[in-house]
Structures are given as C-alpha cells and as structure tokens.
C-alpha cells in the first residue's frame, strides 16, 4: 500500500497544518457558503489520492491546487457552457459582502475576470509563489505574474488606491 520511495507524513499532519489555509482559500474562491463545501470536497479528493502521491514535497501547494480545481469544478458545473477564460464574474451566494472583513475589496475581487481572480487569490490568500499559482492554473510562472499584475491594477483602479 505504501510506496517504497516516498515517505509521506501521516495525513493528520496535513489536516492539522493546512485545514485553515484550505478553508480560507476555498471561501475566497467560492464564497462564504459554497466555500465550506469546496474545502470539504478538496479534502476528500486529497484523502483519496494521497497514498498514490509520488512526492512528499510541496504538500501545501498540492492541497491548494486541489482546492482551486474543486472551486473551478463547482463554478463550471453551474455554468457548463462557459469557457473558463470568458467566464463572467463568479456569482457567489450566501451572506452579503457587507458581512466580510473587507466588503469593498471582496466585491472588487469577485468582479475580476476568472483567471485573474483565481491567481490573485492563490497569491495573497493562499500565499503561494508564482510557481505554485502557475501549477494550480496549469500555466507558466510568467503568465501567473501577468495575471496577478493585471488583477492588482484593476483592483487599484476600482478601489481608488495608489501603487504604494
């Protein structure tokens, strides 16, 4: 059952170390209500896949990538005809944005184009570097930089903040 070459830590260690990060990212990607479902689904997928992992490196990044894909799957399931790049801003349900810590920013992030929104969320909520963001989005680190840079520019304009 266990690969001879890969020494994976006990799954409980992943849960203890990363469940809060997965929950925060899932909420940021899918909204306050769907976010908790996305996090739960991500953990179930990770649990199922875990014994077959071929590397014990970057397990946090692996979990956040699964979380991103679960959020994307949910989004696509609700809008099956829409390609990801052209998707309209995500329609999150649940509590009004006023319930969140920074409602103006939350609204502005929600209104970003899909890949920019996911990239900027992975970068700052998930605290991933551009290699991690790129892996989650099946793109290159250079493309990740562009997505995040474009997202920040849009947010600055929308929120009226300077590049400090």
């Amino acid at each position: 059952m266990v690969s001879e070459k890969v020494k994976l830590p006990p799954f409980q260690a992943l849960v203890d170390d990363h469940w809060r990060d997965v929950a925060r990212l899932a909420r940021a990607l899918a909204g306050p209500v769907d976010g908790d479902d996305v996090a739960q689904r991500a953990w179930e997928k990770a649990f199922a896949a875990y014994p077959n992992l071929t590397s014990a490196r970057n397990l946090r990044s692996w979990l956040l990538t699964i979380t991103t894909r679960c959020a994307t799957d949910l989004h696509r399931a609700r809008k099956p005809q829409t390609p990801l790049d052209d998707a309209p801003p995500i329609a999150v349900d649940g509590p009004d944005a006023a319930d969140w810590p920074d409602p103006d920013l939350w609204q502005a992030v929600k209104d970003l184009p899909e890949r920019q929104r996911v990239a900027v969320t992975l970068k700052y909520v998930g605290d991933l570097d551009h290699h991690g963001v790129a892996a989650a989005l099946d793109t290159t680190p250079a493309a990740s930089r562009r997505l995040v840079s474009d997202a920040l520019a849009t947010l600055r304009t929308k929120l009226g903040v300077n590049h400090d």
């Binding site: 925060r24 969140w100 810590p101």
Partner: peptide
C-alpha cells in the same frame, strides 16, 4: 488587505 480577504 488581500491576504486578509476571508473571515475565519
């Protein structure tokens, strides 16, 4: 602000 986007 982005790093504190979501509540616990």
């Amino acid at each position: 602000r982005l790093s504190r986007l979501t509540p616990g």
